[in-house]
Design a binder for these strands. Structure first.
Lengths: 219, 219
DNA sequence: AAGAGTATAAGGGTAAACCCTGAGCCTGAG
DNA sequence: CTCAGGCTCAGGGTTTACCCTTATACTCTT
């Protein structure tokens, strides 16, 4: 387990920043070490902080995302910057790329896409929301690669085990789950045993905590 | 402890919705029962759902917040709607009020203001972000009332109970906690019984989930 | 065809969880 | 002082969790 990715969020909407911060941290993606409401504030922060990645809004007052990106890259050439766009049509994506952003995520996309974008960019590759690509280049014959939906899940658990796990994480007992799934209690207990073994948990509570920490369930 | 406030979030930016949802639910303010990406989707939802409050973005494609608000109020005159504004200058606040919104929160404000706004509106009063008021009316001599910072801590659990709860939330058994605290297992079981009763949980797993959801512990 | 993996289920055992009652001790409020 | 509430502990009961082994049937891969 390497140390957490350090992120700075730059957006003029505080509610959006706080939401993204929660999203990122809840997903265990990274640690938000700072927030900035415009490019100027962000550059000041950058002088004394070392983020691994920046989530940068493009439209901002005082200093917009493009200018901030260009100046930040001048300071830290290796800095990874992921742009957040509203797809309002006002953004100049080419110049943003020239300024040094590693990718774009449209704000209409979900957390799964944000997660994929962050991981991709941190891996050194560039990332572009498919929605954005569709807007810019229409003559693309590239297929959508959903290859790594979740290549990190070691397929540790089977589908059935995960299903049973969901119910345990809702606080249900083996008996209740057995009733729900029309199965024998012994069957559910078998699944639990496997779950305990695979997750290296001593009891069901530890199993549930494991599931929560590893985002195997929604709470 | 009344049942949780049911909220619907209407905003075309999924990331924003998900963030707000997390914010609202993490703070224990309410339960987000649905999300909609535009006014049309929201009105469809409203036909079969009964939210206590709606967080409504003003600028949206397909059907904007004003139209959606007017139609929603026509359906449910008592529905509380809180508008989310970007302060872009394009919003017509007067007409939004005529449409039936109970208040405005600017997206540049923080979660504390959102929390205050939600509580105020649910209480039947209207709420307007001070920042918005400053924009519209400059000759206002109202003072900012930071009255209710956090009057919600019911002190539901005693210190000892909370201490025991921490250990349960680490996956320890009653026996292990008894050893740790140099107490009888029966004592720990007594504390657990009280915890189960007070949290209205059927078993320890539900108790742990309760503690996590209500942020009584760090996980 | 053979083997691996999964889902199902059972028996039988110990430990723990859960529930109820009752009770002694201490402290702070009225 | 009295009383309420919190912390401590116990007995005795039922239920569930947990662990072990074994076994059948199905699917997929080799």
């Amino acid at each position: 387990m390497q140390s957490k990715t350090k992120i700075i969020i730059v957006d003029d909407h505080s509610l959006f920043r706080e939401g993204i911060k929660l999203l990122v941290e809840m997903e265990g993606l990274a640690e938000v070490i700072a927030e900035a409401e415009n490019g100027q504030v962000f550059l000041n922060l950058l002088e004394r902080m070392s983020p691994d990645l920046v989530l940068m809004d493009i439209e901002m007052p005082v200093m917009d995302g493009m200018e901030a990106t260009a100046k930040a890259i001048a300071m830290r050439p290796d800095l990874k910057i992921l742009a957040l766009t509203m797809l309002s049509g006002k953004d100049n994506y080419i110049d943003m790329i020239k300024a040094g952003v590693m990718g774009f995520v449209v704000k209409t996309s979900g957390k799964h896409e944000l997660e994929k974008a962050i991981k991709t960019v941190l891996g050194g590759e560039s990332y572009f929301s498919n929605e954005l690509l569709r807007r810019i280049i229409l003559n693309s014959d590239k297929h959508q690669t959903y290859s790594n939906q979740s290549d990190d899940t070691d397929n540790q658990f089977t589908e059935r085990e995960l299903e049973v796990l969901q119910y345990f994480c809702k606080g249900m007992t083996a008996n209740e789950i057995a009733d729900k799934l029309f199965r024998s209690v012994k069957t559910i207990e078998s699944h639990r045993s496997k779950l305990l073994e695979k997750s290296n948990s001593k009891n069901t509570i530890n199993l549930v905590l494991y599931a929560i920490k590893n985002k195997l369930v929604e709470i």
